[in-house]
């Protein structure tokens, strides 16, 4: 008996040891590509580093963030362009994720009903998701073209607008153009996640509701929504965090326009175009901190269980 128990714990020890051996290569690579660059970026945020001379940097404390110099405040925290980028990012995230959730819900509910050709429709909605972001930005850039775009053509044809709109260039519509393309591209992702949540729901309460003659809209709000809430919350968090770091779509569709500049676009512009590695790193560090705080909040509030038992 004791011999068996002894060899069992021996086996456990051997397994734990091999687990660490298996983990080591992955951890080294992750430390190299994520940990180290992140630490260096945060370090650069406190220096006056310049892209042309990264080795020759001086530590300047919080001056990139905020500095009082000869009666004036300088730094990221008093830079109107930075705050503009922050508000653009928040506005983009809130509006696009809200629209994607509502539309994704509609698509998911539709796909959850039985009809002929359901498989084809599901395949069709995967197409926007599969198209590379840069390609969808270019595709839409062409459809939204001010002179030759098909969208202006159609809208003028059916009489909604009387003159062509410069969707991506005009300050009033640029952000809406970005949101429209993002909604087009990401709604399928939301729909599929919600659909996965819908498909594991028990069918008996729906049958009961049907027998009792309860209106489907009421069933949706009283039964479906509460039941898929956990899946929905996770999908929302993933999408929200993803939207906060948006870069590609905006860089290609509206480039450096002030109306659509987000935190990532701003940080890269400082870093690469203006070569201000110190200042740009300060902006990246701020974005990282914002997302880190949100992740920690979600993980604690959402009680995401990670340490659950191994089967």
């Amino acid at each position: 008996m004791s011999v068996a128990a002894g060899s069992a714990s021996e086996l456990t020890r051997a397994r734990v040891r091999s687990a660490w051996i298996f983990l080591t290569p992955m951890m080294i690579v992750l430390a190299l590509v994520a940990g180290w660059p992140l630490i260096r970026t945060i370090y650069f945020a406190f220096t006056d580093a310049n892209l042309s001379a990264l080795d020759d940097t001086r530590f300047i404390g919080f001056a990139n963030f905020l500095e009082y110099y000869e009666g004036e405040w300088y730094g990221l925290l008093v830079d109107p362009d930075w705050w503009n980028a922050v508000w653009n990012t928040i506005w983009f995230t809130v509006v696009s994720v809200a629209l994607e959730t509502v539309l994704g819900m509609i698509v998911a509910l539709t796909l959850n009903t039985a009809f002929k050709g359901r498989g084809y429709l599901r395949a069709a909605i995967l197409i926007p998701w599969a198209i590379p972001t840069i390609v969808s930005a270019k595709m839409w850039g062409w459809m939204l073209h001010d002179q030759f775009g098909i969208l202006n053509e159609i809208l003028i044809g059916i009489g909604i607008i009387s003159a062509p709109i410069a969707w991506t260039a005009s300050p009033d519509t640029a952000m809406w153009a970005v949101i429209m393309v993002d909604v087009w591209k990401t709604t399928p992702f939301m729909a599929l996640l919600i659909l996965a949540g819908l498909q594991i729901l028990p069918t008996d309460c729906y049958e009961a509701a049907k027998v009792d003659g309860i209106h489907p809209v009421k069933v949706f709000f009283k039964v479906t929504l509460p039941l898929i809430r956990p899946a929905l919350v996770v999908a929302l968090i993933f999408r929200g965090l993803d939207a906060l770091r948006i870069f590609d779509l905006i860089y290609v569709l509206t480039s450096n326009s002030r109306e659509t500049m987000t935190m990532s676009v701003y940080a890269r512009q400082q870093l690469v175009d203006f070569q201000e590695v110190g200042y740009g790193s300060a902006a990246s560090t701020m974005l990282f901190m914002i997302i880190a705080v949100l992740v920690v909040l979600t993980l604690t509030v959402g009680k995401v269980r990670l340490g659950e038992e191994v089967k």
């Binding site: 992140l38 970026t41 650069f44 890269r268 870093l271 740009g280 990246s284």
Partner: peptide
């Protein structure tokens, strides 16, 4: 996996 890519941009450039 939630990292904003831009947060490692300058460090990665240096590396």
């Amino acid at each position: 996996s939630m990292f904003p890519q831009v947060a490692v941009l300058s460090g990665m450039f240096e590396l």
